[in-house]
Write a protein that binds this DNA or RNA. Structure first.
Length: 355
DNA sequence: CGACTTTGACCTGCGC
DNA sequence: GCGCAGGTCAAAGTCG
C-alpha cells in the first residue's frame, strides 16, 4: 500500500514537474543532484546531514521515478563498469577477459559498457508536422519496411562525426500520430540548444558561418533546432568546455558526474573533466591531447552540443502541455514534439549520458 | 557546392 | 546450409 502511494506520489510529482514552467530543468537538476549523491556508494547510513529529510525523500522519489520507467543500465551497472580504480577488480577482470580473452586484461570502458544494452525506446506524440526534434541533429542513412508493419522504419545517425549515437524512427501502427523512437548509443557531445543559450549569456562568440566539425551550427538547416531556450533558462549554468571535451570515449560520457552544484537556483551541468578521465581510466596519448585541445577550442566557440536534448528539457516545443495539438502561439514552422510524461518510455540514453 | 535524403543492394544474425 | 528479416552501405538525386 505504501508502495502504491509512493508510486502515485512519484507520478504526481513527475507530472507536477513536467507541467511547471521550469519543470524539466528542476527534474534534471534533481536527477543530477541525485546522481552525484548516489554515484559513490553511501559510506555510512548515519544521518550525518541533519535537516536533509525532505531532500532525501525527494531524491528517493526521483529514484523511484527512474526505476519505474527505466529498464536499461543502472547506476550500479555503470559503477561496476567504472569501479576498476578501486572497486570490484575481480568482476572487471572477468568482464575484460570475456571481451578480450587473448590479450592481457586491459580495462576498456567501451568494452565493459558494451555488455549493456544501450537501447532505449521513446514514444513521441507528434505535434502536427510529424517530426520529432530532440535537440540533436541526425542524418538519415536508411529506411526499411518492416514485416507486419505498414510503416517503414527510418534509421538515423548523429551527424557529429565523433558520436556513434543512432536512432530508429517508426510510426506506431495503432497511433498514427505517435512515433516510436529507439535510441541506441550515447551522445558524446552537447546539443546545439545549450550552446545557443550560452551564446546568449556570454555574448556573440564569433562563430564561423560554416563550421566543419559541428553541423549543428548550420544556420539554414531545415532540421536545425528551434530555439526553445528562452529567458526562463537565464539562470542555467552552461557546462564548461572541458566537460564536453571529455566526451571522447563513451565511458567518459557515461561517467560524467557533476563535480559540484553549489549555485542555489541554477541547474548545474558542471563536470570535473579530470575526475571523468580518472574514473574512466583513460590515458590520452599526444595525438588525443591535441584533439582534446582542438575540441576545447571548438567548445570555447560553442560548437559542442548539449548533453540534454530538447526532448527532455523542453517537451513539446517548450510547452508543458501533454496534448497532441500544438500549443497556442507556437510557430507552425517550429518542429516540436509532444512527450507525454505518463508514457512508460523515457529516453534514458540521454540520462545515462549524465550518469 | 556541400549537406542531406532516397533507395536498391549488400551484409549479418537468427531460427529452422 | 538456407531463407528471412533487420540493419547498413553507398551511389544517385534533391535542395538550399
Amino acid at each position: 500500500m505504501e508502495e502504491l502511494d509512493g508510486s502515485a506520489a512519484v507520478l504526481e510529482m513527475s507530472n507536477k514537474y513536467w507541467h511547471q514552467d521550469f519543470g524539466e530543468e528542476l527534474l534534471m537538476s534533481e536527477l543530477l543532484d541525485n546522481t552525484s549523491a548516489a554515484a559513490p556508494p553511501p559510506v555510512s547510513k548515519g544521518d550525518d546531514d541533519d535537516g536533509e529529510g525532505p531532500r532525501r525523500r525527494r531524491e528517493s522519489m526521483v529514484n523511484k521515478l527512474i526505476s519505474t520507467v527505466y529498464s536499461g543500465p543502472t547506476i550500479s551497472d555503470i559503477e561496476s563498469a567504472l569501479s576498476f580504480t578501486g572497486g570490484d577488480h575481480h568482476q572487471l577482470a572477468v568482464d575484460a577477459r570475456k571481451y578480450n580473452s587473448s590479450s592481457p586484461v586491459v580495462f576498456s570502458p567501451e568494452k565493459v559498457l558494451s555488455k549493456m544494452e544501450n537501447k532505449y525506446t521513446l514514444k513521441i506524440k507528434t505535434c502536427g508536422n510529424g517530426l520529432a526534434e530532440d535537440g540533436y541533429k541526425w542524418r538519415k542513412y536508411g529506411q526499411k519496411s518492416i514485416k507486419n508493419s505498414p510503416n517503414p522504419r527510418s534509421y538515423y545517425r548523429c551527424t557529429n562525426p565523433r558520436c556513434n549515437a543512432k536512432k530508429q524512427v517508426e510510426r506506431a501502427t495503432d497511433e498514427p500520430d505517435t512515433l516510436v523512437v529507439t535510441y541506441e548509443g550515447l551522445h558524446l557531445h552537447y546539443t546545439y540548444s545549450h550552446f545557443l543559450h550560452a551564446a546568449q549569456q556570454q555574448g556573440p562568440p564569433g562563430l564561423p558561418k560554416k563550421p566543419k566539425r559541428s553541423p549543428m551550427v548550420s544556420d539554414s538547416s531545415p532540421s536545425s533546432v528551434p530555439d526553445l531556450d528562452g529567458p526562463a533558462h537565464a539562470e542555467e549554468v552552461v557546462p564548461p568546455p572541458a566537460a564536453a571535451a571529455a566526451a571522447s570515449p563513451a565511458a567518459a560520457a557515461n561517467a560524467m558526474v557533476p563535480a559540484s552544484c553549489n549555485s542555489s537556483a541554477a541547474t548545474c551541468y558542471y563536470f570535473d573533466e579530470e575526475e571523468v578521465f580518472q574514473q574512466a581510466g583513460l590515458i590520452m596519448n599526444q595525438h588525443e591531447e591535441e584533439e582534446e585541445e582542438e575540441e576545447l577550442h571548438m567548445a570555447s566557440n560553442g560548437l559542442l552540443e548539449d548533453v540534454v536534448p530538447l526532448l527532455v528539457r523542453q517537451p513539446c516545443g517548450g510547452s508543458t502541455t501533454s496534448s497532441s495539438s500544438p500549443p497556442p502561439g507556437s510557430s507552425p514552422s517550429t518542429s516540436s514534439i509532444c512527450w507525454t510524461p505518463t508514457s512508460p518510455y523515457i529516453d534514458m540514453a540521454i540520462l545515462s549520458n549524465i550518469f
